[in-house]
């Protein structure tokens, strides 16, 4: 986002457009709906709730079971004809602005159930508009993170205040071909450290070295 520093008295003003601030805030506080129909939901649980991968690092860990409190619908698992109507209802119950990530082969194209099935939908975009496609069967948690980071970038780049219902063309967030597990993990670590140290480690170190200091962890100083 465009940021300028104000010169003059005080010197601690930050000038930017309100729209940019809101987009930035929105992108970092996505509330996904706990919705999953099959296999991809387990990988989504591994990614979002569980301790190893921990989606909280990217600001999207507040999963909500009610669509009225969520703004991100991660469609995880095959959608069949019978589920299409409830899914549409769920989507419509979510408040604007709302975003949709389609994870896994089934919701992108029908995946293994594309041929000879009398009930599997061939792509969820027949039912609801999709922002980001995450391929995989199922996508590994890092793949889902890549999709969420892509969505966050889209939200930041999109001036969505005046026209919240306006949609951009969907994108595919596929991990590059030939990438190894070690490379993914190294990149994740780098990303975590780059974002995490600023927010957590520095403050933590400061508090540890000076127990009396009040800062990142309010209450720590008082408790001693």
């Amino acid at each position: 986002m465009a940021v300028g520093h104000a010169e003059g008295p005080g010197q601690n003003l930050l000038l930017t457009r309100l729209e940019d601030v809101i987009s930035w805030a929105r992108s970092n506080s996505l509330w996904p709906l706990t919705f999953g129909t099959s296999c991809c939901a387990i990988e989504m649980m591994m990614a979002s709730g569980a301790s190893h991968h921990d989606l909280a690092r990217f600001g999207a860990e507040v999963t909500r079971p009610s669509p009225r409190q969520a703004d991100l619908l991660i469609v995880a698992g095959t959608i069949v004809k019978r589920m299409a109507q409830p899914l549409r209802t769920l989507y419509e119950q979510m408040p604007e602005p709302r975003y949709v990530i389609a994870t896994g082969a089934c919701v992108i194209s029908g995946g293994p159930f594309i041929y000879h099935s009398y009930s599997s939908l061939r792509g969820v975009d027949d039912v609801i508009p999709v922002d980001v496609y995450v391929p995989g069967c199922p996508p590994r948690p890092e793949g889902l993170f890549y999709g969420i980071l892509t969505l966050q970038r889209m939200i930041r780049e999109r001036a969505g205040l005046k026209h919240p219902e306006e949609r951009r063309a969907p994108v595919t967030a596929a991990l590059p071909e030939g990438i190894t597990k070690q490379e993914i993990q190294a990149e994740m670590l780098e990303l975590f450290e780059a974002q995490g140290r600023r927010n957590v480690h520095e403050e933590y170190r400061r508090t540890v070295s000076d127990p009396g200091a009040k800062g990142a962890y309010p209450g720590r100083g008082e408790r001693g």
């Binding site: 698992g77 069949v80 019978r82 293994p112 041929y115 000879h116 009930s119 599997s120």
Partner: peptide
């Protein structure tokens, strides 16, 4: 029936090796 994908019908059009991967799902 909210996730009835018709796997048994699909299996009738798959070779035996391919069916193994459907059973995962």
């Amino acid at each position: 029936g909210y996730i009835h994908r018709g796997i048994e019908k699909i299996c009738e059009h798959q070779t035996y090796r391919q069916i193994v991967h459907l059973s995962d799902r």
